[in-house]
Amino acid sequence: MPQDYPLIVVNDVDYSYLNGTVALKKINLKIFKGELVGIMGKNGAGKTTLIRTFNGLIRPTNGNIYINAENIKSKTTGTLSQKVGIIFQNPQHQVFSNTVEEEIKYSLKSLNLSKSETQFKTDEILKKFNLDKYRERSPLNLSGGETKKLAVASIFCRDPEILIFDEPTLGQDAKEISFFIELINSEMKKGKTIIIVTHNIEFAMEYIPRTVLMADGKIVADGPTKKIITHEFLVTKSALVLPQISQFNLALNKIGIACPDTIYSKNTMIEFLADYIRNKSKVVSGENN
């Protein structure tokens, strides 16, 4: 459960790239401890730029970022990466070791653990991610899904307080997505704060309670996911597509079936339609009698 304590505070943050592109404009955001937050928006909206400021990969042109009430301005990326772990879109960007086991050990290297502790943590994480059987295999020979798992595992083994995923469902099959969802749930139970950058609106609708919607480097909406991503204007502005359930809802309203816009799940929609058909058949049978 999220606590009242804001873990990440973003204060009037601007960021411009060297080529003059303004990627972030006056961003103000609070993310609470234990929260699961989604960041959505069209390509180039500033989502990835924003998350890269959280562990100091890029420094804001203006404004401040506080993590655990500490301004991160003077902190190095090395220090910040112990608190904030970012799992990037392309897992191929980080694998380089000879074996899967060494890949995990490399992530643990900067934590200054003893040899036995490093081995223990490596074994534990490999088991957790079902990568134990590939321990001696080259990470370059793993499948796309397994490489992604390895990339996630190499951040998880560092046990950061804040976990940030950039497009975690991209190119993943159903089994891999459900493994990822289980993983998020178990981390949430441990009180971790999770931020997910995604374009997958159905995934966000089902699993992410709060969404920050970005467009042209600004936050255009921040609130309950279900309200934001079923809002036709906001969704169109962010070049997203309404969830299928909302599209179905609109279609029903167009043909004269007054469907309430508070229906967000398949089950509620089925219940609504069942009630509607039941009532309609009662009216028809009444008319016939």
Partner: peptide, 12 residues
């Protein structure tokens, strides 16, 4: 991007 990914896991 590679530099960012490595730095995120403690690469100095």
């Amino acid at each position: 991007n590679i530099m960012d990914a490595q730095q995120s896991r403690g690469y100095e």
